[in-house]
């Protein structure tokens, strides 16, 4: 069954039409990239999927159910997790604490005023496991605000994974990164997709990353869908080259 279905979603800000009648479906296990020039409406489109904004018109279905009107937290409970273009973490908390919070939320403990010793042990074990996966163990007790941009990005992705999502939304995961960091994050995403069969939708500027990772690519331009297809099809698409790749490659 289709995991995510966006039907003719639009978002207007006053007279500006940021997203104009865009549809998309994502199948389980798929890695979908959304690309497009600056101002194409990619992040707004993401915000509609994750519940940051309600669409002006259109409908969003997750796992066969209408989630168009659901608050972000409720979409998270159903299995949707996201990261942001500008890293959103808890800078004055340690790496361990940053990961502990989503682990507890995912375990349904967010309102608990106490934890049993067993439950506490399970939470700690899961946090340790996530730190190992993100190669963060050596920084466990450092404050996240003191760490490098690349580390913060990895932490943010791990926080999203701590929620045990069925769909991971990544908004420009390699933005502002050097070559090595970009490579590391790309490898991490690839691993999550290949080994854990996680469904991922990703906005990305770096074409090397996109063509390396994506099963299918959707191209947005001026709020509208310009093209959709496999990386090969998109690379060969003349409209895309004219609107986007031509200027990016030059």
């Amino acid at each position: 069954m289709t995991l995510l279905r966006v039907e003719s979603a639009s978002k207007h800000f006053g007279s500006l039409i940021a997203v104009n009648n865009v549809s998309m479906t994502v199948e389980p296990g798929e890695l979908r990239a959304v690309i497009g020039p600056n101002g194409a409406g990619k992040t707004t489109f993401f915000n509609l999927i994750s519940g940051f904004f309600r669409p002006t018109s259109g409908r969003i279905e997750f796992d066969g159910e209408d989630v168009t009107a659901l608050l972000p937290a409720r979409r998270v409970w159903r299995g949707m997790a996201r990261t942001f273009q500008i890293t959103e973490v808890f800078p004055e908390l340690s790496v361990r604490e940053n990961l502990r919070i989503p682990v507890e939320v995912a375990a349904g403990l967010r309102l608990r005023p106490w934890l049993s010793r067993d439950a506490d042990g399970e939470i700690r074990a899961r946090v340790t496991q996530l730190m190992e996966m993100g190669d963060l163990t050596s920084k466990a007790d450092r404050l996240v605000g003191e760490l490098s941009h690349g580390d913060q990005r990895a932490i943010e992705i791990m926080m999203a994974l701590a929620l045990k999502p069925r769909l991971l939304l990544l908004d420009e995961p390699t933005a502002g990164m050097g070559d090595q960091e970009t490579y590391d994050v790309t490898q991490l995403i690839r691993k999550l997709h290949r080994e854990q069969k996680l469904s991922i939708v990703l906005i990305e500027h770096d074409m090397r990353v996109v063509f390396h990772l994506a099963d299918r690519i959707m191209v947005l331009a001026e709020g509208k869908m310009l093209a959709e297809g496999t990386p090969e099809e998109i690379a060969a698409n003349e409209a895309v080259q004219a609107a986007y790749l031509g200027t990016a490659a030059a």
Binding site: A81, L93, W114
Partner: peptide
């Protein structure tokens, strides 16, 4: 006691970064 509990940690999360807390599934 509350501040050392999972609930207390969600409050600190809201203080630190409300948007992040919201998108980690905390109904802020």
């Amino acid at each position: 006691w509350l501040l050392r509990s999972p609930f207390g940690r969600t409050l600190i999360a809201i203080r630190e970064n409300e948007r992040r807390a919201r998108f980690l599934g905390v109904p802020v």
